[in-house]
Write a protein that binds this DNA or RNA. Structure first.
Lengths: 117, 117
DNA sequence: CAGAATCCGGTTTGATACTG
DNA sequence: CAGTATCAAACCGGATTCTG
């Protein structure tokens, strides 16, 4: 079936949604879409993320094959994060969601306001 | 700018991502895309969701103008949930994400396995 | 049937400070 | 620079029970 499987808790699609649906992964993909970035660059680009959480996010994404982590033996140390082809392929779907968000955010906010919320 | 704003914690895009990035909203949109559904139908269609959480999700989505809630004064009571045009417009972006997930789930799982995860 | 209310544990998140 | 350690808080979410 086309998407009924997404409703099965054991369906792998759920795994992906849980992963990329997290607060920071989407921002990381967007931040890396134009090339490699260092840890601090990512932290600064993504507002409001603490080092710990950013590390968790990056590790998880590396674990899932979405990006690679490269350590340069330099002083001062340098670590670069780069999207894999798999990670890059995620950019298009993410874009379609963020574009929807940008186009419709006022409609959502209007609905909230109308609800006295 | 095209998406730099998404990195501002106060950016409305973040609000949307936080909302539709939750565990169940996506499934609700998919469940409702072919027409109205009753509460129990939704609960049964979406595996693993408790009434409380489903109610929370539906209320939040109603609040945001993504769906409407219609109560019929019958016995037994009947409540139908229907996507608004706004909610329906969310279907396409969601599809593009779930399609990515379905296409690439094995790649992700392979990466996890390769990582001894 | 469609929820509301309550209770409660566990994961997630975060601020802060510290280290190689 | 690139994280880690520690601790506390928030929140999510589940089970259960109850009601109109």
């Amino acid at each position: 079936m086309e998407n009924g499987d997404a409703f099965d808790p054991n369906c792998p699609t759920r795994l992906i949604l849980d992963r990329i649906g997290d607060k920071w992964s989407v921002l990381v993909v967007l931040s890396l879409r134009e090339g490699p970035r260092r840890f601090t660059e990512l932290r600064d680009a993504i507002g409001g993320v603490t080092p710990k959480v950013l590390t968790q996010t990056l590790r998880a994404m590396e674990h899932d094959g979405l990006l690679t982590r490269e350590v340069f033996a330099e002083v001062p140390p340098r670590v670069e994060y780069t999207l894999t082809p798999l990670g890059q392929s995620l950019h298009a779907p993410i874009r379609s969601v963020t574009e929807w968000a940008e186009r419709n955010v006022h409609a959502v906010l209007a609905a909230r306001a109308a609800h006295a919320g």
